[in-house]
Structures are given as C-alpha cells and as structure tokens.
Amino acid sequence: MIYQFKEHIPVVHVTAFIHPQAAVTGNVIIGKHVYIGPGAAIRGDWGKIIIEDGCNIQENCTIHMFPGVTVHLKANAHIGHGAIIHGATIGKNCLIGMNSVIMDNVILGDECIVGALSFIKADETFDARSLIVGNPAKKIKEVSDEMIGWKTQGTELYQQLPDEMRHYWKACEPLREIPSISADKLDHNADTQYQTWNQQRKNQDG
C-alpha cells in the first residue's frame, strides 16, 4: 500500500513493482525496475528515502531514519530478506545480507557485500568493494570480481521480477490436491537456476 504523510506522497516509477502487502509512506522516491516485497516497511515520515533504479527490497525489510535524515539506496542495491536500513547510505551495486542491520549515518561504498546477520554500528564508513561481516561488523577482505559478478547476476533476476509480477502474479484460490503433471513442467525455472556463492566456487574449482 502507498500512503501519504502530511504533504508527502511517494513517487514511484511506473516500471517498479510494490507488493500490496508492503507499506510505502511519505517522502519516498522509487526508481525504475525496483522490486519491493511483501512485508517491507519503507517509512519516509521523519526524513526522506531515495531508492534508485534497479534496487530490490525483499520481504520484511525495514527502511527508516531519525528526523531530518535522508536514506539513500544507490542504483542496483540488493537488500536481503529481513534487513534493516536505518538512516544509512548504501552504495551502488551493494548486497546487504538477510537480517542484517545497518545503523544511522553508515556509508557503504559501491559494490560492498554485507554478510547475513551482520550489525554495522552507527557512523561507520566502508570503502568500495569491502566484504563486511559480524556483530559488530568488520571488513574482512576485498570483494573480488567473481563475487561482484555473482551478486550482479542475482540482482538482475530481481530487476526482471517487476515485469514478471505484472504479467503473471494474481490472487487465486488454492488447489485441494496436487495436479498430475510431468516433472519437467514442475521445474519451471530450470533455464534460470541461480547458484549460491559456495556452489559457484565449487563448480569453478572443478
């Protein structure tokens, strides 16, 4: 749902997809081919939220801020399930792992990767291509070309999703028994299977 707050009405590009069970409130700007999943709360009541082109904010994420602050997700930022972004700036093509918390005034350079369940405390700044993990989170190494290529591939799937949702997504009644269909039809995503980082490394190592 989209909500006005005081004089602020969210601005959403026509190519973006916002799930009706997400809540987008107030001073929020959402760019092209952005995906917002169900349960996400994007609350621009006390400050401003800018979500640039190609970003995705997955299920149950929260984006908010202290009064007067702008939260900025730069192009192609990828915010994993359940993550919290509070008053931070996320650089271009960053990946924020599932259930991570990014606190106030944090600045992530471009193409950083934050591991799942990480906690980045307020006022931290990380250079581009930092791999950041832990609680409190620390940089453990540089993000390699292979890692950022893997991340970019995953983000591209989410950039295709808004258009697919508009074409194929609809409410329905459940089936009461499993239909009799062939195994190849069940594997409907066989042509777009995506490997975890560990799977990809294993295949590369032979």
Rank of each mutant, 00 (worst) to 15 (best):
V106I: 15
I107P: 03
L108M: 01
L108H: 02
L108I: 06
G109Y: 01
G109W: 02
E111G: 04
E111M: 06
C112N: 05
I113T: 05
I113Q: 06
V114W: 05
V114E: 01
V114H: 00
V114Q: 01
V114T: 02
F119Y: 14
I120S: 10
I120V: 14
K121S: 14
K121G: 10
A122G: 11
A122K: 14
D123V: 00
D123K: 07
D123T: 03
E124M: 12
T125A: 08
F126P: 08
D127R: 04
G134C: 01
N135V: 02
A137I: 04
A137G: 07
K138M: 14
K138A: 14
K139I: 06
K139T: 08
I140V: 15
E142I: 13
E142T: 15
V143K: 01
S144Y: 05
S144K: 04
S144H: 03
D145L: 00
E146Y: 07
E146Q: 08
I148Q: 11
I148V: 00
I148C: 04
G149L: 08
G149N: 09
G149H: 05
W150L: 09
W150Q: 03
K151H: 08
Q153D: 12
Q153T: 14
Q153A: 15
E156G: 04
E156L: 06
Y158I: 04
Q159D: 03
Q159H: 06
Q160Y: 01
L161K: 09
L161C: 02
P162Y: 04
D163I: 12
M165N: 07
R166E: 10
R166Q: 09
R166W: 11
Y168F: 10
Y168D: 06
Y168W: 07
W169G: 03
W169L: 10
K170H: 09
K170D: 03
C172Q: 15
C172P: 01
E173W: 09
E173N: 14
P179I: 02
I181M: 05
S182M: 13
S182D: 15
A183L: 15
A183C: 14
A183W: 12
D184K: 11
L186S: 10
L186V: 11
L186D: 04
D187I: 08
N189S: 15
A190E: 13
A190Y: 12
D191F: 09
D191L: 11
D191N: 08
